[in-house]
Design a protein around this nucleic acid. Structure first.
Lengths: 229, 229
DNA sequence: AGCCATTGTCACGAAGTTGTCACGAAACCC
DNA sequence: GGGTTTCGTGACAACTTCGTGACAATGGCT
């Protein structure tokens, strides 16, 4: 699976450097430029999978770059995420109108931008960022929302899916009912601790397989954990 | 329990000396440096549990040190507390986003910094890799809630588990029944001293292994201790 | 509206755990 | 050695904790 390519058009050097680092860490192959005209060239030459484009840049303006990217046949389909200054509602509308797929208003946390980019990536290239967690004979594909046990697809409810996903992100570790409520239901949920038991049972029932042991371990008076059988 | 190691990266000599003194008094084992490049070396060699990192330092900049610490596999998980000069929101966000776990803006009181470091230590420590206690042929993994003797998993009840954990945190030391009640049952428990004997017996029974001696030592008229066989 | 999947809660029984005691063995003191 | 103190051990009843089936409420979907 080749790393998804990303073209970053941003003229604030500090922000550009930060974003380049973060996106690289996220598994993207990043090409960065501060100039609008250069961005158009790179968009053709590098054939990026996605463009992150600052509205206010040197050379050709962001909106103009966006427009030309859409007009050019080879880049017309490439998703674009715009970075716009806060409050510029007009810009937002114009941006989306011009063909941007999403926008993020400054100031933003890189985390947010990455989340949006990842979301678009998943939409465009479902096989990408293919978060498949594997623990024992269990495999979970977060993007496809699919769980398999020994290759066989198993059906889980939404809550059971999140519960299993959380367990698979921390295999072997024991979590109390309270911790599971925080992680799976949210910190501000007002739910009975024992409700966790019920969902554990539903999860167990969902992933049970004749001839295979139960990977969900009950640790009395402590909580539950997922074991790599 | 070994003293938590702390790497202090600060180029103001007066502040560095003050913090080193305070953190040492707080029970940390402190390594200090004023240079960013040296910090990266020390972070690998000393394997600190936590790094306190000034944003503005000589050599490599704080944010760059932070970034590299995160990139290096052996230091990627080490919590970082940044010291930022300005109250600039940008720096804060950038710092946290680069992987810092917390930040403190100058000027700050050493008390505040120590409080934050302690807080992170409490939060991170139980999840650190050095989480498996080892005494003799016994190993205890608190996060997985598992005990092994010579590699073989042994089953213990909740109280026996806590009792053994406490013993393993202070190997070789003799504790009276009263001390054990305080430590394992809680200071406000109203339990017969002799009850400890029963749990000692259950612990012994749980970890007994043919061919191996009993690591739990009875010290007549004093209490019990766990010996590294 | 009607259907269906999902969800949170409860009640009950099963299974595991705990604190206490009684009794005997062992260690200690003179 | 006799008396005393301290500890090991089996038993047990009270107590926790957990698994499970049932059920009503919710909310999406047709």
């Amino acid at each position: 699976m080749p790393a998804p390519r990303l073209l970053l058009v941003e003229d604030d050097p500090a922000l550009a450097e930060l974003l380049e680092f973060r996106f690289t860490a996220e598994g993207y192959s990043v090409t960065a430029t501060a100039d609008g005209d250069e961005a158009l060239l790179l968009a053709v030459e590098e054939a990026p999978d996605l463009v992150v484009l600052d509205w206010m840049i040197e050379g050709t303006s962001g909106i103009e770059v966006c427009r030309r990217l859409r007009r050019e046949k080879s880049t017309a389909h490439v998703p674009i995420v715009m970075l716009t200054a806060r409050g510029a509602e007009d810009d937002k509308i114009r941006g989306l109108d011009t063909g941007a797929d999403d926008y993020v208003t400054k100031p933003f946390s890189p985390r947010e931008l990455i989340a949006r980019v990842n979301a678009i990536m998943r939409r465009i290239r479902p096989a990408l960022a293919g978060e498949t967690l594997e623990v024992g004979d269990l495999a979970l594909d977060a993007t496809a929302h699919k769980v398999t046990r020994k290759g066989q697809v198993v059906a889980l409810g939404p809550t059971e899916f999140r519960l299993l996903k959380f367990f698979m992100e921390h295999p072997g570790r024991v979590f109390s009912r309270g911790q599971l409520l925080d992680a799976v239901w949210g910190t501000d949920s007002d739910i009975e601790l024992r409700t966790v038991d019920v969902h554990i049972r539903r999860l167990r029932k969902g992933i049970e397989l004749a001839g295979s042991a139960d990977p969900v371990r009950t640790v009395r008076s402590a909580g539950y954990s997922l074991e790599a059988i």
